[in-house]
Design a protein around this nucleic acid. Structure first.
Lengths: 206, 206
DNA sequence: GTCTATAAGCCGATAGAC
DNA sequence: GTCTATCGGCTTATAGAC
């Protein structure tokens, strides 16, 4: 069903390693890590099962690479969007818009990144969790800035940041490419909802 | 880690079948369906692996029963809460508050119910999906009522209903019992956030 | 209804030829 | 670096005693 070539992994070399990684992304997103076989992954890359072990030590290492690169990408996307010029409401608007659009456009990668974490080895899991904390901190920082500037009214900054994050990442779970809304439209809708959640003054129309 | 005896399955008989079901809920919530072995489930119920097959034909049937009963319970919870006496803002407030609290209090069951669907057989999957539609319809109905009453301002009712649902069910993913907020507190916070999302007039304080 | 024992098959990973 | 062939182990599910 899904075979989104994902530019997040464009830099992976050699070619065979990248094809295996992309095959793993699609397979993990469709069936989940544990239901995916190494035969399936290798088959999607047009290779034999044994070839996988030339490029990756274990199946889990594939998931780890996907999680690591995917999280790096998503946190950079969010950080850069949150750092645009402008008032804090505009920055939150753009951050949510961009982050949501990424989760829709890269829903295959995002689904693995967000929902297959528990299959990681302990050490890898800990590393990824610390990357996720950075994502939450960016969002929390925006809310704190808005409250400090008197533009947002938020009683529980930490809890609200969690809620905003839920909204954004859950897009990866339900989004389907043929749906009635484009990633851009979902991003715009969600940015508006989040501005309301933080009590930002309403722009103009609705 | 989790061994929440869940009253959702209190009516399951005989006793051994219920113990197996509760063991499966905990195991599926911890590791996921595919990573859980029948030995693990049977062990949690204090039985041998073979005993499982006296009460359930397959491992998938356990997941199906959990999904079916869990969805029935959660949709009833939401429907009843959405039907309380009062204005539409109060009904939405109470519905979100109750639905969120259920997802926190029954996070083990809810995690399986919300995030292990893809492991169901095609026929079972279709049945569960149709139950999920009812949940979405209740929420959408509330938003439509609020717009019709002039109490809510929502540009995209369907999209906003999806967003509200995301917020609620994602609680089951991140909630941990020892956290800083009680289920009741999370429900109250989220109900407030949702009222803002739909443009309901602010009650009083914040 | 529950047990012990085991069948039948699939899985992750490796060996060794090319 | 990729293949074919295969190992050892674990899985779901069943057989048959009690």
């Amino acid at each position: 069903m899904a075979e989104t070539a994902d530019e997040s992994f464009g830099g992976v070399t050699p070619d065979a390693a990248r094809r295996l990684l992309l095959g793993a992304v699609d397979a993990f997103a469709e069936r989940g890590f544990h239901a995916t076989t190494t035969r399936d992954i290798a088959g999607r890359a047009g290779m034999s099962p044994a070839a996988l072990y030339i490029h990756y030590r274990t199946k889990e290492e594939l998931l780890y690479q996907i999680s690591r690169v995917g999280h790096e990408r998503s946190v950079v996307i969010l950080q850069e969007a949150a750092a645009v010029e402008g008032g804090v409401a505009d920055r939150l608007d753009f951050a949510v818009r961009t982050f949501v659009r990424w989760h829709a456009e890269h829903h295959t990668t995002a689904r693995v990144v967000q929902y297959e974490l528990s299959a990681l080895e302990d050490g890898h899991y800990a590393e990824i969790v610390s990357m996720r904390r950075r994502t939450e901190e960016v969002l929390r920082g925006l809310l704190e800035d808005g409250v400090a500037a008197g533009e947002f009214t938020v009683s529980d900054v930490r809890g609200t940041a969690v809620a905003v994050l839920s909204l954004c990442i859950d897009v990866a779970r339900w989004y389907r490419p043929g749906g009635p809304r484009t990633p851009e439209e979902i991003g715009a809708l969600y940015a508006g909802l989040v501005l309301r959640m933080v009590g930002a003054p309403v722009p103009v129309a609705d």
